[in-house]
Design a protein around this nucleic acid. Structure first.
Lengths: 137, 137
DNA sequence: TTTAAAGCTTCCCATTGTGGGAAGGTCAAG
DNA sequence: CTTGACCTTCCCACAATGGGAAGCTTTAAA
């Protein structure tokens, strides 16, 4: 292996340090979210700690439910010196909206199901208000 | 076209009556959720009103967030004369659990984001607590 | 009757984000 | 030098839906 300067590492180590699987790191690279890293002579990807930081950033953004497309933009803003925090805030607010909407949808489903289940005896007999409702109208 | 008895229809009409797209009807058939229908001599699928009812059933179950796998079981239970309503109720309760869990996850995301956004000025300056948080640690 | 539009068929591809696995090259330790 | 762990690329899968192409059938109008 080619000796590289400083604290560089291969994909497995970067994965361990960042908490992002090697599979995903390659995927992020393939969709252009992550820059193509240098390679050793034998073709192994080489990463530095800055890459690990970026991967952690991505991971955190994922944990907040941001889409890949949004994360691509966020990484760009993060790196940008001339960014305006208003842009980031706008993305965050818009994402909160999406989350709230999704929550409402799921709540509606849950509420509807709760109503149905409390009317269902849930015994050995075939009669079932849940199925009746699904089949109704 | 072969004259078929009674009120039979082709896939387009079944789609319109059930509210399930023709694309999806074929898909449901391909994954075994829906029985393979009879065909005309020229290969067109033939449906009856009972199929439309089943499709509506599926559509309603989807609207409640049930997975295809669950719906397959629900349709089976619906058709079964010997079903026990307890089985249906158990599926419903389990699904409610999943929904509630998902809701909690989304709520956590939303709450976390709300906290971050209210600390972000959102102006023309680059300083941004949201990005800082994503990059932290 | 002929023709054009609308509808049907199958097959393939894309989405989102993640994982599994195969086939084959590389590196490190015994 | 072998073995095992690691890397590479490439393909497939999930769930549910939609888009579209190529080609055949039915229907409605001219």
């Amino acid at each position: 292996m080619v000796r590289t300067m400083g604290d560089t590492m291969n994909i497995g180590r970067a994965a361990k340090l960042s908490g992002v699987s090697a599979k995903m790191i390659r995927h992020y690279e393939s969709i252009g979210l992550f820059p193509k890293p240098l390679r050793t002579n034998s073709g192994y990807r080489i990463y530095a700690m800055t890459d690990v930081h970026t991967l952690k950033f991505v991971k955190r953004a994922r944990a907040l439910g941001f889409s890949m497309a949004d994360i691509k933009k966020l990484v760009g803003l993060w790196r940008s010196k001339t960014r305006e925090s208003a842009q980031v805030k706008a993305m965050a607010l818009s994402h909160i909206q999406e989350l709230e909407q999704k929550i409402q949808e799921l709540k509606s489903m849950s509420e509807a199901l709760k109503k149905l289940t409390c009317h269902c005896h849930g015994d050995e007999r075939p009669n079932c208000p849940i199925l009746d409702d699904l089949a109704s109208e």
